[in-house]
Design a protein around this nucleic acid. Structure first.
Length: 265
DNA sequence: CATTCATCCTGCTGGC
DNA sequence: TGCCAGCAGGATGAAT
C-alpha cells in the first residue's frame, strides 16, 4: 500500500513524538515477524529516516529497526494501551505506544546493525526526494534497458519509492504510454519523466497521501490525494485533459491506467 | 545478464 | 440475502 509519499508522511508525523523515546516493551502477534527483544529493549530512538518505501528507526547505538508497510501495513501512534484491528506488533515507549497493523501480512519489521542498514539502503535505487536525484544519475539508469517504462519505474533497485498508483500518475503527467520501452524514449520524454517523478510525489505529500482503501495516517485518518488522481482507478472515466475514456491494462500482474489519446506509444 | 512470472497473505467488493 | 471469483498502495526468488 504505502508508496514513498505515504511513508514520508508517517516519518514526519512520528519524528517528534518518537525522538528521545526509550523502548520499554515489544509484543509480537505474528510469527513471520522476528525481533529479539534484547536487541532493542531500553534503546533510545535517535532519528527516523526513510529511503524509498523503507523507514528506519535509528537507535542511540546506531542499530535500527527497519519497517516496510507492504500492501496494507500502518503505524499507529497512541497514548493508551489498546488492541487494534490487524495488530501485529505493539511497542511500548517511555511515553506513548506504537502499533503496527497489517491485514495482509506483507509488511516487514527487522532489527539491523548499522552495517546491515547501510547495505539495505545501498541496494535501494535513487530516491526522487533525496540528494543524488540528478539528471545525470537518472539518465544513466535508462541506458540499455528494454523493458516497459512502467516496469522500470516500479523496480526499487533503480528508482526507489514509486509503486503502482504513482507509476500510472507519473506517466500520465509525462504523457508517456506505460508500455513504451525505456530505450525507445526520446530525450524529451526522458526529461519529462525525470521532472514528473518528484512533482507527483511532492503533490501527493502535500495532499497527505492517497487513501483508496487501507492507507491511514499515524492517528488513523485518511489522505486526500485520491481526489487528485488523474488516471489511477478511473477506468472508463473521461481523461481530465481530453475526455477520452481512461483505459486499464495489466502489466506485470498489476492494473495500469492511462489515457490512450494523451499517452501515445 | 535482463526480464517476466508465480507466490506469499487476508479482507473486501461486486456480480450473480 | 448469500456466496464466491477477483481484486488489492509490494517484494521476492525461480524460471525463461
Amino acid at each position: 500500500m504505502p508508496e514513498l509519499p505515504e511513508v514520508e508522511i508517517i516519518r514526519r508525523e512520528l519524528l517528534h513524538p518518537l525522538i528521545g523515546e526509550r523502548i520499554v516493551d515489544i509484543e509480537i502477534y505474528d510469527n513471520k515477524i522476528q525481533i529479539p527483544s534484547e536487541d532493542i529493549l531500553n534503546k533510545v530512538i535517535k532519528d527516523l529516516i526513510r529511503k524509498g518505501k523503507y523507514l528506519f528507526l535509528i537507535f542511540n547505538d546506531f542499530s535500527s529497526l527497519l519497517f516496510h508497510m507492504g500492501m496494507t501495513g500502518s503505524l499507529i501512534y497512541i497514548q493508551a494501551k489498546d488492541n487494534l484491528r490487524f495488530q501485529r506488533v505493539f511497542v511500548t515507549l517511555s511515553a506513548g505506544f506504537i502499533a503496527f497493523c497489517d491485514a495482509r501480512r506483507f509488511g516487514k519489521i527487522k532489527y539491523l546493525t548499522e552495517n546491515e542498514r547501510k547495505k539495505v539502503m545501498q541496494n535501494l535505487g535513487l530516491d526522487p526526494l533525496l540528494s543524488g536525484y540528478s539528471w545525470n544519475n537518472f539518465e544513466r539508469l535508462l541506458i540499455n534497458k528494454t523493458l516497459p517504462v512502467k516496469n522500470f519505474l516500479m523496480n526499487q533497485a533503480w528508482v526507489s519509492g514509486i509503486g503502482n498508483i504513482y507509476a500510472s500518475e507519473i506517466l500520465f503527467l509525462s504523457k508517456i504510454h506505460p508500455k513504451k520501452r525505456v530505450n525507445d524514449l526520446t530525450i524529451q520524454e526522458k526529461k519529462l519523466l525525470f521532472d514528473a517523478i518528484p512533482i507527483v510525489l511532492k503533490q501527493a505529500i502535500q495532499c497527505e497521501g492517497t487513501t483508496i482503501r487501507d492507507y491511514q495516517h499515524t492517528d488513523g485518518s485518511s489522505g486526500f490525494f485520491q481526489n487528485c488522481l488523474q488516471v489511477y482507478d478511473r477506468e472508463g472515466k473521461p481523461c481530465l485533459a481530453c475526455g477520452t475514456p481512461v483505459e486499464r491494462i495489466k502489466m506485470a500482474q498489476r492494473s495500469t491506467y492511462f489515457c490512450p489519446f494523451c499517452q501515445k506509444t
